[in-house]
Write a protein that binds this DNA or RNA. Structure first.
Lengths: 237, 237
DNA sequence: GCACACTTACTTACAAGTCAGTAAGTCACT
DNA sequence: AGTGACTTACTGACTTGTAAGTAAGTGTGC
């Protein structure tokens, strides 16, 4: 399978970045082999979950044995962490390509990401499965997801604050951010179970619009429960 | 296998319901033993997930061996299904005690349930973990959660339709229902990871209020992304 | 009201498989 | 020549599920 040829050797020296920040110097194709493993792991963990996803399956899909995978990542847990960081890396790279999350335009980035996710169920599944699995006792990705959520909430609240220009309290901003994150995450599960039942981009967009509009208005919506009760008993018991 | 004897023959005529469709009569304490297993299973599956939750642990917590558990439920998968149905049973019983989901008052029931859930992290975790795990390939609870979500969405959309009295289209009602479900599910994960970071009842209530208010108004909120862009470039590029 | 036939509710023991991780060796690059 | 990238081979810890046995129930006929 491996056809490492003379051609490879010629250009290893040309790359400045090659072994720059690595602790140990890897061979020419190492980086792409590691990446192949990471992609395989994303797919397997997404399809089966971290607990049920076996290293042999990851290894097979990356074209090596499971011991080879362990050679690169030390342990299954190490692989998980690497997958998570890799995913972040990809996402950041994607954002950077567009524009690195400058204030208000971060909102359109969110919408775009949701729309894109519609075409990559694998990525969505990996994230949805792992994030929920992470709440189990002693799960290795627990801290990762807790931190990630906190940072994201803070970030979204900040952007919403900019957009609404001081019309809303910090608490309302944080609540709105939590709501938006919850809608995105919750919809993913619904969508994975039944892709035709929900239109993720439309619903997330609507939610965001309503959230911002409400934040701007400064007033809370009337109680839905009271409205409902009034319907049942118009006299107002 | 069947030892149909003369004794049987003598009385088969007396009973209309004969051995053929006999349900199996359990002994006196069987029901509570089964329930002990179900409770143990809820706890273990919640804490560890279905895949990692071992039968031995469930059995231990119920005070028997894992073979005893299999005697009652046939297989691990059978136990999972039983747990899910058991959970529904409890919930239905709770609803019935209050009032069986009559139209508009279903909304206050939702809010009450969310508030109650704040005091039973175990139940929340079981649901959150299993529902997300169910999206993995060939998971035994997949159909259960798909159906459950569909029914719930339809139900909520129906109630929202009653409350808003024809002000909204069916699509908008379904979207609002999906949103509400997503918020509840998504918040649960955030809350499990960091209980102090989100106030579930408050946020769900707010979301419901805003959803109903928006549905009543009939008009969509202005685009948040456009508002944000206007901020960055007020000329309107 | 008691013996007999049979079932239920388990237990212990085991089979069979899966999985992460390790040790030692091979081979290609550098 | 030495290090990095593997493979092969193996171990040990866990799994679920099955088989076989046992004690305690349950219902029936007499």
């Amino acid at each position: 399978m491996e056809g490492t040829t003379v051609a490879d050797t010629a250009q290893t020296a040309t790359r400045v970045v090659s072994a720059a920040d690595r602790v140990q110097r890897p061979q020419a194709r190492t980086l792409e082999r590691r990446e192949a493993v990471l992609q395989a792991a994303m797919q397997v963990f997404g399809a089966r979950g971290y607990n049920k996803g076996a290293l042999v399956e990851v290894a097979e899909q990356a074209g090596m044995t499971h011991a080879g995978v362990l050679h690169h990542f030390g342990s299954k847990e190490g692989l998980l962490i690497a997958v998570l960081k890799y995913r972040d890396g990809i996402e950041v790279a994607g954002v950077e390509a567009r524009e690195q999350a400058e204030g208000p335009s971060f909102l359109s980035h969110i919408i775009e990401t949701v729309a894109e996710n519609t075409h990559r169920p694998g990525v969505v599944q990996t994230y949805a499965v792992l994030s929920a699995e992470s709440v189990t006792d002693g799960h290795p990705a627990q801290e990762y997801f807790r931190d990630r959520t906190t940072v994201l909430r803070e970030k979204i609240a900040g952007v919403l604050g900019e957009v609404t220009e001081g019309h809303a309290s910090r608490q309302d901003l944080l609540d709105a951010a939590s709501t938006l994150i919850a809608v995105m995450d919750g919809l993913q599960v619904q969508w994975l179970l039944d892709p035709d039942a929900v239109d993720m981009p439309r619903i997330v967009t609507k939610t965001l619009d309503e959230l911002v509009d409400r934040l701007m208005s400064g007033a809370a919506a009337p109680s839905a429960v009271e409205r409902a009760n009034a319907l049942v008993d118009p006299t107002g018991r």
